[in-house]
Each structure stands twice: as C-alpha cells, then as structure tokens.
Design a protein around this nucleic acid. Structure first.
Lengths: 213, 213
DNA sequence: GGATAATTTGACCGGTTGGTAAACATTACA
DNA sequence: TGTAATGTTTACCAACCGGTCAAATTATCC
C-alpha cells in the first residue's frame, strides 16, 4: 500500500507523507464521482495541486492510486459492522447500527460512492476482500442474529438478507443522493432527510423484526 | 429519440429498425457493465456485430446512443410503480410491488445497473426526468400511502422513505450482485437467493408497517 | 556550505478513442 | 432493369490519456 518510490532507506519522508495524503484525498474526490475509467490522472493531479509526473512519482500507476485508496477506505468502512456486538441487546444494537451507517452515508458519501462504483463494475479490485474478510465478518454477525432469533428476542428471519437490507437502505442516501433530492424537492434537500430516514428505518426494522421499542 | 440519420422521408426502414435494435441491445450490455466513460463505441459495435462507422451511421455520437437507451428503458423501469393501485388493499399492493421490483432485479439486472451508473455519476442525462415525471409519480403514490395510514390500514410512516427503501432493497440484488454472491458463498448463488430475499422483504415491510398478513 | 538524496518539471511517446470523409455496395421502387 | 436513396467499409485524423525520461530544483545531513 505504501509507495515511496525512490527511497533506498525504507523510511518515509515528511513530504512523502503529506503528498500521498493529498493525492489520496484528491483521488477519493475524483474516483468517487467519475468511477475508475471515467477519471484521469490529470484530473487527480490538478485537484491534488501538483503535476502529473509529480503524482506519478508517488504512485506508479493509476491502478496503484485506486488500490491504495480502496485499501485505506475499506477498513473504516466496515467499522460499524465490526462494532455490532453479540452481548448487546438486539434493539439497541440494530438501532445503533442503522444510525451509524446512516451517519456514514451523510458524512462520507464519497467513500460510499467509491465502493458503489467498484462493486457495480464487478468489483475487479476488491473481489478477494469480499469473499474473504467481508464474508467472514458477515458470517459471524449472521450467527449472532440467528442466536437472537432462536432465543425469541427477535422474529425469525434470514440474517444475511437482513444485513443486505440495512446496507442498501442506508447507503442509498449516499449513492443515489441526486435521485433522493430530486424526488424530495428543494425544501427537503437540507439535512432533514437524514433524520426522517433514521426515524423511518428504525420503525421499519424494529417493526419488521417484531421488536418492541 | 429516433435517429434515422440520412432519411429525408421520415419513415424508418426495416433495416433501420433492426440495426437500431441491435445497437441498443449491445449498448445496454456494454454500458451497464462498464459505465458511460468506461465503454467504447468499438466495444458496442463489436457486440452489435457491425463496424464502428456503421454504428455511427445510426447514432451520431456516443451520447446519442446512451440517451436513446436511457429514454427507452426508463419507461418500462417505472412500470411497477405506476401499477401501484390506490384502490387495492395495502397488503397485496405492497407485497406485489416488492415482488415485481425483485423480479425486475432478477430478470433485468442490466437495466438496473445502467440507471445505477447514471445516478451515481450525478444523473447528467436524466436529472430532468427525475425532477419531473418521476417526482410527480412518487408524489402521487406517496399520497395514496398517506391515505392508507390516515385510515389506519397501515402504521403511520414517511411514504417517501418507504418508497426509497423498497427501491434500494430490491435493486441491491441487481446492482450489488457481485457482493451479494461473494457474501452468500457459492452454493447460495443460484436463483434461491431471490426467493429468500422475497420472503425476507415481505416480512420486513409488512411487519414494519404493522400489517397483519 | 557542499555533497548527496529526494522532489519537481517540461517535453515527449505510443496507444486508444470519438468521430469523419469518401468510395463502394446494396436495397427499394418506378 | 435502371437509378436514386440507403447502407457499409476502409482509411484516416485530432485529441486525449497513461506513462517515461532526463534535466532542473529543492531538501537533508555531515
């Protein structure tokens, strides 16, 4: 993931640190709004405030930038699911998972769109991550949910599709933001829609799982 | 939308009809899996079984192909929502809306991904359709849902976010298919996941809206 | 302050891509 | 069957894009 092209000593310079940060920030901006193929190195370089050869001094190829970016973002992206706790009670765990995913859609829409673009195009760069770490994590949490159902704490349901539906409903507000705004109209396009969404989704999932709030 | 480049008489030839059909079919295949920028005219031409200049004889630019395709698909895409009937009873209407949207995700994933790509990139070519016809249609159906809630037939809820959540959960199985398959694993990657999804989503929405099946 | 390593730049290259020009082939129709 | 309109192909172009190179500039450290 680190790049440090010309460093013979393995230590990273202060400049390297700063510039790589600038580049990844710019790359997030550009990749998330045009997709991989739709983005050019020149665009990223311009947003990052440097020349193209200069950028290529830190990341040898376009793929390298994209790969480093995905790797960096993936980790924080899965954080909410990791926080899902078996020992907590179903109501508060599901409620807070929805809330956190919705906050991420609100505060980090670019990260969400970066993944959406990637997955939509067949996930060429993250398919291994999906089949490995992601699947394991989901399997683990699905087991927790199944236990809750067995213990009668929530209605019996398919835990995988429950997780899918939480992902899709929450990320929708980042990935399809333009559509959401278009349908809600001008006045609703402030931040209010996130609170309305939170209220609705909590009602939906708690009700759907027959949990008494 | 029609193109008929060299026709002085406005009538469309049999050949025009056939070739434009081939082109749009090929364009759907290519655009839906690589996005607009990620697709090339050469790719589309090859899938359509003709040379690039030949294709450009029917559609003058890449944008023209994309525009025509979107316009054609948009109509059928909104069909399920149009079928949503005020006079029906809430349970069967919502149930069949979910089922139809899920069938579309299963049978027409390319169309779903085409839109997903478009919206993700800021909907440059359909923003007017979203703010106009789509918004009107949703407003109309939202009013129906609100009436049902007022009459005590379903729980009170935000009708717009209800519609968003049906869209997102169902389209997820087309747009994020790779991820769904990766998480479910090999054996579950047959068509069974759509039936599981249907069962789960009906439970979720009917329960979330406090409807007794 | 000077040697050395790290960083930045402008000029450039080969391949791709959207699109054109014009010659050639085919179809429709009198 | 002749001819005008329609359809197809080959060759091509200019812009763009990912990436390289060598020279110039700046930072680091003794």
């Amino acid at each position: 993931m680190a790049t440090a092209r010309a460093s013979r000593t393995q230590r990273r310079t202060r400049i390297q640190e700063e510039k790589e940060e600038q580049i990844l920030e710019a790359a997030l901006e550009v990749f998330s709004s045009h997709g991989f193929r739709g983005s050019t190195i020149d665009q990223i370089a311009e947003v990052a405030g440097m020349s193209k050869p200069n950028l290529l001094y830190y990341f040898r190829t376009k793929e390298a930038i994209h790969g480093a970016l995905i790797a960096r973002v993936l980790d924080t992206w899965l954080e909410p699911l990791r926080a899902f706790d078996a020992k907590g009670n179903p109501e508060s765990e599901i409620r807070s998972y929805i809330r956190r995913k919705l906050e991420m859609a609100r505060d980090f829409p670019r990260e969400s769109r970066l993944f959406a673009n990637e997955i939509l195009q067949g996930a060429p760069n993250v398919i291994d991550e999906l089949k490995g770490p992601l699947k394991s994590l989901v399997d683990e949490k699905a087991a927790v949910i199944r236990t809750w159902a067995k213990d009668g704490k929530i209605a019996r349901c398919d835990p995988y599709h429950l997780i899918f539906s939480i992902w899709s409903t929450t990320q929708h507000y980042a990935d399809f933001d333009v559509q959401v705004r278009a349908v809600l109209g001008e006045q609703q396009s402030g931040q209010g829609r996130f609170e309305d969404a939170a209220r609705f989704l909590e009602q939906l999932f708690l009700g759907g799982l027959a949990i008494q709030p």
